[in-house]
């Protein structure tokens, strides 16, 4: 097996996550799809780190994880705040900025 197979897997996972972001309406599920995309990017970083023989890719993946954790905290807090006022977690109900 060639190590680049990991890249194909990461590409597939990223695509699935992107399609999920486009398809789903529940804000929390959309968030989980974003997490999937971030993890797919992490897998490419780790694989490239191994292909290049340096640890910089792993450091990048580490930073991505930290930023993702911060992003999840803020995003879920926003979802909860919106749910408090609108009693809904659907992204369709928060479209007042549309026009």
């Amino acid at each position: 097996m060639n190590p680049s197979n990991y890249l194909i897997l990461a590409a597939l996972l990223f695509t699935i996550g992107a399609v999920g972001v486009l398809l789903r309406r529940n804000a929390i599920v959309v968030f989980m799809c974003v997490e999937l995309m971030l993890n797919a990017a992490n897998l490419t970083l780790v694989t490239f780190s191994r292909i290049n023989g340096t640890l910089d890719g792993q450091i990048m993946a580490f930073f991505v994880m930290v930023v993702a954790a911060a992003e999840v905290v803020i995003g879920l807090a926003i979802i909860l705040t919106i749910f408090r006022t609108r009693r809904s977690a659907s992204v369709d109900d928060v479209n007042l900025l549309k026009y």
Binding site: N2, P3, S4, N5, L7, I8, A11, L12, F14, T15, S49, R50, I51, N52, G53, T54, L55
Partner: peptide
């Protein structure tokens, strides 16, 4: 995304490996 990577695999890339790092 997949087909270019597949092409790269067929070319036979080498991974440097992390044993030294």
């Amino acid at each position: 995304l997949v087909f270019p990577i597949g092409g790269v695999i067929n070319n036979g890339t080498t991974a440097a490996g992390l044993t030294a790092a």
